[in-house]
């Protein structure tokens, strides 16, 4: 097996008495889609926050393409090729959807390019293509605070994808989305990821979504990785079922 794209070793972070991460080892291989499941408050979002530089781990290392990134600020990490989306969509609410995405496309270009027009023909086309890939073309010109929750979630992810990352971390991409839409959204999303060759990690509570869309699952419980492996095997593990799925009461 080639070197992993992302490798966390001995990652630890505690808030007061709560151990969000307690010596976690986790690897993500290039091209795979990894789901992280686990009870609420287990530290899944904290993991994303540490990888993307929002929180600094108290111990351990995070290597991305072999390079240590633990403790770097979010801005530096983004430029290395790691983007993220948020559980609660973080949109620029006074901008249109198109502008939200275009600004993220523009973020990759240099200083002087920042003073050309935001919606140049080229960038507009690129943003529209990206939105179309997620079935968002119809809302491109709506102000981003006027969308429903499902669309906001997708726009949030579209913004992250516009950064053209090698690794995308998604915090509960389907929470707050109507149950009927979940699979449709994930189908579109996973197709887009595969098309662009983006490696992805997503935190998820819906086991059906995990079973259908993830290549691999890691179970995060009380700051540790309880189990990891192919979805079918992990989701059938009795300990996992009791600790995670039982608590959640989700159907399986």
């Amino acid at each position: 097996m080639s070197a992993p794209l992302l490798a966390a070793r001995g990652l630890s972070l505690a808030f007061g008495g709560v151990r969000a991460a307690d010596g976690v080892d986790l690897e993500v291989a290039e091209g795979e889609i990894l789901a992280i499941i686990g009870p609420n408050g287990a530290g899944k979002t904290t993991f994303i926050n540490m990888v993307t530089g929002y929180l600094r781990p108290q111990a351990g290392s995070i290597r991305f393409t072999g390079r240590e990134i633990a403790g770097l600020p979010p801005r530096r990490i983004v430029r290395l090729g790691i983007a993220r989306s948020f559980q609660i969509p973080q949109l620029f609410t006074e901008h249109t959807v198109l502008e939200n995405v275009a600004l993220h496309l523009a973020a990759r270009s240099g200083f002087w390019a920042a003073f050309g027009p935001l919606l140049s023909a080229e960038r507009r086309a690129e943003a529209m293509a990206l939105l179309a890939g997620l079935d968002l073309a119809a809302v491109a010109h709506a102000r981003s605070d006027q969308l429903d929750e499902g669309a906001r979630k997708l726009v949030d992810i579209a913004m992250a994808l516009a950064l053209r990352p090698r690794l995308l971390l998604m915090d509960e991409p389907t929470s707050g989305v109507a149950a009927a839409e979940k699979h449709a959204i994930m189908d579109r999303l996973v197709a887009a990821l595969r098309r662009e060759g983006v490696t992805a990690v997503f935190v998820e509570h819906d086991m059906e979504v995990v079973a259908r869309h993830a290549d691999r699952v890691a179970v995060w419980s009380q700051g540790r990785i309880l189990a990891e492996g192919p979805p079918a095997a992990v989701l059938a593990d009795p300990v996992v079922r009791r600790e995670v799925i039982g608590v959640e009461g989700a159907p399986c």
Partner: peptide, 8 residues
Amino acid sequence: TRLEFAGI
């Protein structure tokens, strides 16, 4: 905060 996560 989102701006920082866009690398800006």
